[in-house]
Design a protein around this nucleic acid. Structure first.
Lengths: 267, 267
DNA sequence: AAAGATTTTGAAAGATTTTGCAAGAATTTG
DNA sequence: CAAATTCTTGCAAAATCTTTCAAAATCTTT
């Protein structure tokens, strides 16, 4: 095998494994440890990889995407269903705000076909559309909160202050009859700006968030125009919200086999 | 079979395989290894293919996210070297602006160790640091230009107007003694905002940009504090810039030794 | 169409690079 | 501090590259 091909394969392997020992790589590639050592020296020189004692590590892990995109599989099916349902509330060609957070991300995944204009403070959502010319993508800017890829702070707030959208798809840490709450004050600031910028606010929360309260207060329930949640939502909450004039959509959960596939090892 | 047909077939084959050994190609085409070698030399000269030890590799892998990451493989080594050199002009912990574009991207790749605060309008740069808590990342926001992942427009300009940085690492489409130029008016607006926001401006351009002019005028050469380019830069340009008080850094190209060729081997 | 000139092809010899191994230096761990 | 592991360096063998040359193929000229 050729040196460059081998090096490429090492990179590919590391993108899956994050760490790898020398012997692991040598066995995977069918060459000696010395050769792997030399290849790693080259790759480190190019800056993609960091050698560690006994192995190597990926330096700019492209695969270690944002936390929720990979790791936060909690209520994944619910969020997927909610995303699909919520996207139906938007019309083709509209200007839409998409909040940061995993639930709103799943909404975004279903918006592409509408050829919308999308305003977001979420880096994962941005990456979703960055290569899609059919979607006009506008970012709020701001300080990026490391692992979540959320843009926060005054830059984001001021940018949203000058924008206007027809619908905002928002997430939250919790919702009760007393109000909508979230986990961080900086998030709240940006979300308030989103509320002001949008004609219509759609809150997307899975059923575990209903009846729960998070640390920081965002707004009264009346500020929300529609709530999209999943079928497992407690009935009294759903009816209570409807009594307050809030439209509630229950996303159907098709309870088929969970189809959780095991992580495939390298070939 | 005709030579050109053979070469075309080699390209086709490589587009499927990405890598191929000499013997693999020789067998596939039904010719000797020597002939394949010669064909690869021609194809490499045309710039579509890269010869490796034992075979050849496709130069434009289609797996990359943003366009510059694949299109600009031509001056890739230069840009890599420039990036490494330019990063030395920053001090640990400083606030740095990183422009969009491939050259500035390569600078960014070398900035992580400085634990800097990074301001950028480039989505690829943002992704580079989004998962790195050691780097404080600030995005300008703005309309995202589809394939390049650049944030543009008034949102970006206004955000930069309220920021301040110690060093700005900028790219450009061309630079002459008359001024720095770039390819698009919207880019220029944002770059002007960067110039205003930074104490010190470092222009990172490979040697093909020196002496070339692009469509839109950005600024006079005097606005630039330092130029980082590669060793292949024309001497008279380098000296002309230095005469104007601009610091010029030449990044060393550690290309493989040109393998002292006897006369007559030119292609 | 035939003879000569030019180009292309395939193969071999020498130079260069890469690979795997081993010994000594450096680092980590208990 | 000592043992174990890992890293670096130097070297010979193997593989690959470049150069060179003669035969085959193609083109040009008459």
């Amino acid at each position: 095998m050729q040196p460059e091909e081998r090096q490429k394969r090492i990179e590919t392997y590391l993108q899956q494994a994050e760490f790898a020992s020398l012997e692991e790589l040598a066995a995977h590639l069918g060459v000696s440890v010395s050769t792997v050592r030399r290849d790693l020296a080259v790759l480190e020189g190019k800056g993609n990889i960091r050698r560690t004692y006994g192995g190597a590590r990926l330096l700019n892990p492209q695969s270690e995407e944002f936390i929720f995109a990979r790791r936060d599989t909690r209520q994944l099916e619910e969020k997927e269903a909610i995303g699909r349902r919520a996207a139906m509330l938007a019309q083709p060609g509209q200007t839409l705000i998409v909040d940061a957070g995993s639930t709103a991300y799943h909404v975004a995944r279903h918006l592409g076909a509408l050829r919308p204009q999308i305003i977001t403070n979420s880096l994962p959502v941005a990456n979703l559309f960055a290569s899609t010319p059919a979607v006009e993508l506008i970012l709020t800017g701001g300080v990026v909160y490391p692992r979540l890829g959320v843009m926060l702070g005054p830059v984001a707030v001021e940018a949203l202050g000058k924008m206007h959208a027809e619908v905002a798809f928002m997430g939250a840490g919790g919702m009760t009859f007393e109000g909508v709450t979230n986990s961080h004050a900086l998030l709240i600031e940006v979300q308030r700006a989103m509320l002001r910028a949008a004609d219509r606010v759609v809150l997307c929360v899975d059923h575990t968030k209903l009846g729960r309260r998070s640390v920081a207060f965002l707004c009264e329930p009346e500020k929300i125009d529609a709530v999209v949640t999943d079928e497992a939502a407690p009935l009294e909450v759903v009816e209570g919200l409807r009594d307050r004039g809030i439209e509630v959509c229950l996303a159907p959960l098709n309870l088929r086999a969970p189809a959780r596939r095991a992580a495939g090892a390298g070939s």
